[in-house]
Design a protein around this nucleic acid. Structure first.
Lengths: 215, 215
DNA sequence: ACAGTTATTCAACATTGTGTTGCATAATCA
DNA sequence: TGATTATGCAACACAATGTTGAATAACTGT
């Protein structure tokens, strides 16, 4: 019946929790770069020297502090992920819309953590998540032709970067489209590009069970 | 016969030139983030207080200092730009290959200035250059159908982000493909995606004079 | 509940970088 | 050459980092 985590001194858990909360609050308020250790300590209501008993520096706290938060957030962002790699066009649009809706609800959080100027570590983390999902969906095990004209890695990067860029632009837009509208547009674009990609990479054409478009 | 620029005191020109050089050297040596004003002053062999007579801070020097350098570099990176928006597939591949060769020659410079962790300002500058070029090539004036299924802005972002992501991955790869190889692969991918995009956006199909592929 | 352990606090300190100032010196300009 | 102006130099206030030692508080197991 032991807890999954090693029993830590409650004081330690408390302090670290306070710091995590302080970090998230401050990042949303004034961005990551401008935060000082003193800011964190003040907000967390702990002594500045206590900070150094737990973390080496800001980045150290960032990694472990956002890890948990991130792990809660990312799974909600499935990006086309469903049980099986084969996905219908309808299903893709539905999942895409739901993902965008999720991002839209946490708009401030995503805008700040992903934005160009801010936190490369988190930005990279998000991108790698995208990459992982896309690698899974366009898995090399599925490749039919022995020598694809374009290596899969290139396609993975292409797709993840494009998707990421569109999301980021959407997050920073003055008058962003609504999630359903963007989902529809992005879905159309995505589906239409698939055919070419499936040909070029030697992936099976049935990977996307394209259905008749709705008039 | 006056010079284009206002005649500046040679001492000023000298000092600023030294600082620009120092910045570029130090960025290549230890990355942008870690550079201090003292580093710059020492390397430029000027007094630290002199720095503040010319620039407000590091970023200020970065912008004006790299502007010139950047202006020399970017035009060599035409990314499909040619005289007219209509471009043949052959020509596209040739230009793409030349661009990649250019990037490859300045590999260190591009890797450092564009990399995730480094200098958001330059990264953004490069991306905006891509965006500008792509906007020019897929100009709204060319749109035929009055209501494109996918707005052009979305497509611009999609393409620029994808291209940028691939370049960046190529720059940071352990064993990067040669410029001609990547140009061929990226060109194939690009050309194959064009058809779908041209349809979806209502751009004229003749925009890319697709030629028979070479066996 | 008690004694031992340990996290936190607090004050102090050295260090580093920032940004500014006043004055002497040297380079430039007309 | 004389006036102008950029630079060098030294000093300063300030803010943030990272460390230390001793006192205090909180938690632990028995």
């Amino acid at each position: 019946m032991a807890d999954r985590k090693t029993h830590l001194d409650p004081r330690i858990r408390r302090t670290r929790a306070y710091l995590r909360e302080a970090l998230i609050e401050l990042v949303l308020e004034k961005g990551y770069q401008g935060i000082t250790i003193k800011d964190l300590a003040d907000r967390a209501c702990i002594n500045r020297s206590t900070f150094y008993l737990h973390y080496q520096d800001k980045d150290d706290l960032l990694i472990t502090g956002f890890e948990e938060y991130w792990d809660q957030v990312l799974p909600s962002c499935q990006l086309f992920i469903y049980n099986k790699p084969i996905l219908s066009a309808d299903r893709l649009l539905a999942v895409l819309e739901r993902d965008l809706q999720h991002i839209d609800q946490l708009r401030d959080f995503y805008r700040i953590t992903l934005s160009e100027e801010e936190i490369p570590l988190l930005r990279k983390g998000f991108f790698n998540h995208l990459l992982k999902v896309i690698r899974y969906r366009f898995s090399p095990q599925l490749v039919l032709s022995s020598i694809p004209a374009v290596p899969l890695q290139l396609v993975h990067n292409w797709l993840a970067s494009a998707y990421f860029g569109v999301i980021l632009d959407w997050l920073t837009a003055d008058q962003p489209a609504s999630p359903p509208v963007l989902a529809s547009q992005l879905g159309k674009l995505f589906l239409q590009q698939m055919e070419g990609i499936l040909q070029t990479t030697g992936l099976p054409q049935e990977l996307w069970a394209r259905q008749e478009q709705i008039a």
